[in-house]
Design a protein around this nucleic acid. Structure first.
Lengths: 234, 234
DNA sequence: GCAGTCTTTACGAAATCTTTATAAAACCCT
DNA sequence: AGGGTTTTATAAAGATTTCGTAAAGACTGC
């Protein structure tokens, strides 16, 4: 689990040169970046990916930046930064009054742009309390936000990895989870071979959660396959 | 609610030529305008006149625009627009990271400036149901406006950063707040890696708030993740 | 220069993660 | 059923990272 925490930025421009630069710079500053080449595609992307900020060019095929800005403002307060070669006062005013938060003319300084992005993002609240925040299965109550775990009404303290492991198991309660899945989800991509980690941590978890660690009742071993989480009476 | 329909703007600049133009233009666009010639005077004015937006120059006697920006940001979210002859990237970034919302270089287009003012003002809620000026959780009573904190009926003096930190924690009471969130919200801008700041300030806060600083009860650390604020019996 | 605050550094203490070793358990085969 | 092989459980030592704290340095306004 543990979604990347990073702020999401949608870049809308038909010049691939620009989008490439932006993507690279923004990514390297820990933003999640996606690119659209016109306004329509942008709206399409936003149907299932809500960015925290939009950077858009003005002149584009299909739907230009001005229209995109209006469309977005109709339903959302997301910060919009317009980036355009056009420097005329009239154009700027038009964009700003359409709902843009900032207007930067090309060519632009990347460093300045980043600062302006930060300034805009500062204005919107960090989207934290969105998630389901709680898992309740059987004898377990897991509060994701507070990082707390209750087993049979008793609180137990878990380390981050232990916590992640339990959460993953709890999310797949009743099903057998293969070693590889567990490893991948908690230690990430690479070390999917270090099954020893799992053993150690499963052991630790059992010690903390099970009434009798010697005969596990919650975390059941499925030899050669993985582990199954059995949360108890529902 | 005795509010003049008009939005209030404070202009801070030592060049009377500039302030005259701004005052005239802004007034004719139905803003309430006041002028200060330096940062100190600006703060003085704001003691009994809270503007909706501040337009400030950078270089001024007594207190420059950068310092003014920092001071304001320490206690308020009011939009700040910096207006300066200085066009260097470094200066802009500095101002924006200090908390400015926009940066316009002189000479400027009045029409564009007005558009940017509108854009900034659009972002803040009409000061009516803005935010509760008080946070009350557990043993804590925090008065945002007066910058005062009561713990178990006893007042404690906090520095601005300590105060910000506590407020942020209190607003997320019960949840684990990741280091990154805390850093981003209080130090803003880039420094989301300086976890040392946090340690120092959390230590300071504990010393001032906790009955026994050695075994914290309010500000609990969740190793490797962040801190959780536990305000006590509700 | 002084007071208050913020920044930076340093280091021992604490917590967590990784690695290793060994014994027990599960499986497979004849 | 018994021997051999692979997998699992557990403890414990070792390495690494993070935490708490104090204290020195820097900046600001007075």
């Amino acid at each position: 689990m543990t979604s990347t925490e990073h702020r999401k930025i949608l870049v809308v421009d038909d010049e691939t040169q620009i989008t490439r630069v932006l993507r690279t710079s923004l990514s390297s500053h820990a933003y999640d970046v996606r690119v659209a080449n016109d306004g329509e595609t942008a709206l399409e992307i936003m149907k299932d990916w809500t960015p925290d900020l939009v950077i858009t060019d003005l002149s584009m095929p299909n739907m230009d930046g001005l229209e995109l800005t209006r469309r977005l403002r109709a339903t959302s307060k997301i910060p919009i930064l317009v980036l355009s070669v056009r420097g005329e006062e009239r154009t700027k005013v038009q964009a700003l009054d359409a709902g843009a938060d900032d207007y930067v003319t090309k060519p632009f300084s990347m460093v300045e742009l980043l600062a302006r992005v930060r300034a805009s993002l500062r204005r919107i609240p960090i989207p934290d309390e969105a998630e389901p925040a709680k898992i309740e299965v059987g004898d377990f109550r897991i509060d994701l936000a507070a990082h707390k775990v209750l087993v049979r009404e008793k609180e137990v303290h878990l380390t981050p990895k232990e916590f992640d492991l339990l959460v993953y198991l709890a999310r797949h309660a009743g099903r057998v989870v293969p070693h590889r899945s567990l490893l991948a989800s908690i230690w990430g991509g690479q070390s999917t071979e270090q099954v020893e980690y799992l053993r150690v941590f499963v052991g630790q978890l059992r010690k903390k959660l099970e009434p009798e660690a010697s005969s596990p009742r919650y975390i059941v071993t499925e030899p050669w396959v993985g582990y199954r989480f059995d949360p108890g009476n529902d």
